[in-house]
């Protein structure tokens, strides 16, 4: 790629020189330009190579793998990549829409059941954003120690997800602190709603700090003079917040929403640590009810050893996340037009 570029640049420069009727074979500017091209590509080379190999080629391999029936046995991965599933290339994709009857057939209920629980965990995002907005408004007021509060609220965000999840599962456990305080059963033997609400509380608690920091940055960036002008015109604090500050921090809110939806669709560690890994057919009911989609992908890979199947599920996840992101951007552009 680099060589191509250089030749293109030098070639075009030569042509330009020739057309002017000047004959020196090499000019200083030409050389500087070539140097800049060379170094520019040299600086980005590793990143481009890494992205190509570990994202794009991986993705292509993932798509190819999803058409096979590779299970890790019988032949190497490279041999398997070229083959297709004996029942047709799209077997694993068709399976996702076939319900399982008496232990045979597709896995429609698992795929869409786990997808449903993943989407249920997304409820934490609006809750977290409203809470974060509330706290960041309190922090961006003219008060002392707001920096200290920001740091304290950020602590759960930096803590290890594994430790945090295991800690909350102890707090929610039978006889644990929160379960006793609210006199409710959260984990074993509880309703699915109560079980899932644990994960939502956990993720909201963990994600609050990061969102607050971004919102405070957005609120600090609001143009002070607009607020003062509104204040002089007799607007009250609520009107100033809703009509002047909100539109200005809208980009931040949108950014947080998009990134949290992308991240939320990939939730795995918290439910896996609280309810256990998807153990295939023999797994417990609590696990089956609450495993998110990524947990199901991992379960199909790890417990069922259906590697190609897991890969196909992954592709579906990528498509769903892509569509969700597109929908959000479409809604955003419609708002801009109004």
């Amino acid at each position: 790629m680099e060589d191509n570029n250089i030749s293109v640049v030098s070639g075009s420069a030569d042509v330009a020189i020739a057309s002017e009727g000047v004959t020196p074979p090499k000019k200083k500017i030409n050389k500087a330009k070539l140097h800049e091209n060379l170094w520019g590509w040299a600086f980005v080379a590793l990143l481009v190579i890494g992205t190509t190999v570990f994202v794009y080629i991986s993705f292509i391999m993932s798509v190819m793998l999803s058409f096979t029936d590779y299970t890790g046995r019988g032949g190497t991965f490279w041999e398997a990549l070229g083959t297709i599933h004996p029942d047709g290339a799209f077997t694993w994709y068709k399976e996702m829409f076939k319900p399982e009857v008496m232990g045979v057939g597709g896995d429609a209920q698992y795929v869409w059941g786990t997808m449903l629980s993943t989407c249920f965990y997304l409820i934490g995002i609006p809750i977290g954003m409203v809470l974060a907005l509330f706290f960041s408004v309190l922090m961006s007021r003219d008060i002392k120690f707001s920096g200290t509060f920001r740091v304290i609220y950020y602590i759960p965000t930096v803590s290890s997800t594994v430790s945090i999840s295991l800690m909350w599962s102890n707090l929610f456990a039978q006889g644990g602190l929160i379960a006793e305080m609210l006199d409710m059963v959260f984990l074993a033997g509880a309703t699915t709603l109560a079980q899932r609400s644990c994960i939502i509380i956990l993720t909201v608690w963990k994600g609050l700090g990061g969102t607050i920091v971004l919102f405070v940055a957005g609120l600090n960036g609001v143009n002070e003079s607009h607020c003062e002008a509104a204040d002089i015109d007799g607007a009250n604090a609520w009107q100033i917040f809703w009509h002047i500050k909100m539109p200005q921090i809208y980009p931040t809110i949108f950014y947080v929403l998009v990134t949290s939806v992308i991240g939320g669709m990939q939730i795995y560690a918290e439910p896996a640590l609280v309810f256990g890994d998807w153990g295939g057919a023999g797994g417990s009911i609590a696990t089956k009810d609450n495993t998110p989609f990524v947990g199901y992908i991992y379960g199909v890979f790890n417990a069922d050893h259906e590697w190609a199947h897991a890969s196909a599920l992954g592709i579906v996840l990528a498509i769903i996340i892509f569509i969700l992101t597109l929908v959000q951007f479409a809604l955003d552009s419609r708002r801009d037009k109004e």
């Binding site: 992205t51 994202v55 794009y56 991986s58 993932s62 490279w78 989609f293 590697w307 992954g314 996840l317």
Partner: peptide, 19 residues
């Protein structure tokens, strides 16, 4: 590349590293 989520490529990556 940020549009490609990690869970969708991790299986292929595992097979790749395993190979």
């Amino acid at each position: 590349a940020i549009m490609v989520p990690f869970p969708s490529i991790m299986i292929a990556q595992y097979c790749f590293y395993d190979a």
